[in-house]
């Protein structure tokens, strides 16, 4: 029961990342690609926390925290570049 639950949710979130990746390849302009990466990063943060539950180790939560903080900085850097002034 628990194993199938974890696997179904992991594959659902993985499907979400895959859809964002298709939008990344199709997107006509650079802002479309930035939106796809932003969404994929939020989904990935949730996925990392879920993997911490799957492996039952608390140290994996720190990876999710660091990832959330630094992805914010990366996306804001991309947006500042698009706005012509870093």
């Amino acid at each position: 029961m628990s194993e199938t639950f974890v696997l179904v949710l992991l594959s659902a979130a993985g499907l979400g990342v895959l859809l964002c990746l298709i939008r990344f390849f199709k997107g006509p302009t650079a802002p479309d690609r930035a939106v796809a990466v932003d969404t994929a990063c939020t989904v990935t943060t949730a996925l990392l926390v879920f993997m911490a539950y799957y492996f039952k180790r608390q140290i994996y939560l720190d990876v999710a925290l660091v990832y959330a903080v630094l992805m914010f900085i990366g996306v804001v850097a991309i947006a500042r570049f698009l706005e012509r002034g870093i």
Partner: peptide, 24 residues
Amino acid sequence: VIAVFILITNPISSHAIGRASKKS
């Protein structure tokens, strides 16, 4: 802590992308 951080920063980063794409 992680969840509240995402709740605060996610609108800000989307707003940054939206403003940048409006200006570009």
